[in-house]
Simulated scan of single mutants.
Amino acid sequence: MTHTEKVVDMIKWLLHKSDLTYYRIHKDTGIPKNTLARLQKGESEIHNIPLATALKLEKYYLEEMGKMEKVTFEGIEYTLTQEAYLTGTHGNPYYEASGIDADGNEVTVTWEIKDHWLDKDGILNGLLEDESEACDWDNPMSVECI
């Protein structure tokens, strides 16, 4: 993947997959709201924006990624793009969150719930009072490409 393709993917993620509004991006970068709105709506092509705008958006993307939680699985670092949440069946609960790798590939990261939160049948034994203790957050059980 070329650097240009990576920057295009970064901009697409900012405008379409992040929780950031174009108004927030405008406030943080100074890029005109109407420019961002046209890009977000597909009325303007990312390939046609000025280089200075693309560089600002690349820098902003990298700053935003730097603020997000990171996790390593099998030697690869992933940036979480959402908070982990409890899911799975009643008898097989686990946590998962969306993330991306260094190339911008989207992934789902999953964590196993610690045994002391489960009864003998593997069912969650009540409500977790402190989710920071629910899993070994530094060691996910799997990462799958979406």
Rank of each mutant, 00 (worst) to 15 (best):
E69T: 12
Y95A: 00
N48I: 15
K56E: 14
D103N: 12
K120G: 02
E58R: 09
N34I: 14
W117L: 06
K70V: 08
I46F: 05
H47T: 14
P140I: 02
T81M: 03
G126R: 13
M68T: 10
P93G: 05
T53R: 03
A52V: 15
K17H: 13
I46M: 03
S98I: 04
A84C: 12
K56H: 11
G66P: 15
N92M: 11
D119C: 12
Y60S: 05
E74W: 06
F73A: 00
S142F: 08
D115M: 04
G99C: 06
T53L: 03
Q40T: 06
I31M: 13
K17C: 06
D28A: 05
D136I: 15
S132E: 12
K114E: 12
D28H: 09
P50A: 09
L127R: 05
G91E: 15
L86S: 01
L57P: 11
Y60A: 05
Y22S: 09
M65T: 03
D101Y: 06
S142W: 14
G126F: 14
L127W: 08
E129W: 07
L51A: 04
L39W: 12
L57Y: 14
T29Q: 08
D103Y: 04
W117E: 03
E63N: 10
Q40Y: 04
E129F: 07
E83C: 06
D121K: 15
N125P: 11
E69C: 03
I123Y: 11
I123V: 14
L39T: 11
M141H: 05
T29R: 08
W137A: 00
K67S: 03
W117P: 01
I100T: 06
A37Q: 13
L118G: 00
P140E: 02
D119Y: 14
G91P: 15
T29I: 11
L57S: 09
T72G: 00
H116V: 04
I113T: 02
E74H: 08
N105P: 07
Y95R: 01
S44G: 00
L14I: 13
L118M: 04
I76V: 11
L57A: 09
V71N: 03
K70F: 05
L14Q: 08
T87N: 07
E45M: 14
L118D: 00
P140K: 01
E45A: 12
Y22K: 10
I31N: 10
P140S: 01
K33W: 11
I113S: 02
I76Q: 06
A52Y: 11
S44L: 07
I46H: 05
E129H: 04
L127K: 05
P32S: 06
I123W: 09
D136H: 14
H26L: 05
A37S: 13
E77Y: 02
E74T: 07
N125C: 10
E58P: 05
Y95N: 02
D138A: 10
I49Y: 10
T81E: 03
L118F: 10
T89D: 11
D19Y: 12
Y94A: 00
D138F: 08
K67G: 01
A54I: 13
T53E: 11
H47G: 08
P32N: 10
L62C: 00
E129R: 03
S18W: 12
K56L: 13
L127D: 06
K67H: 07
K56Y: 11
A97H: 01
I76S: 01
A84Y: 11
D115S: 08
K70S: 01
N139K: 15
N105M: 08
P32Y: 07
R24E: 15
G91S: 14
E96Q: 12
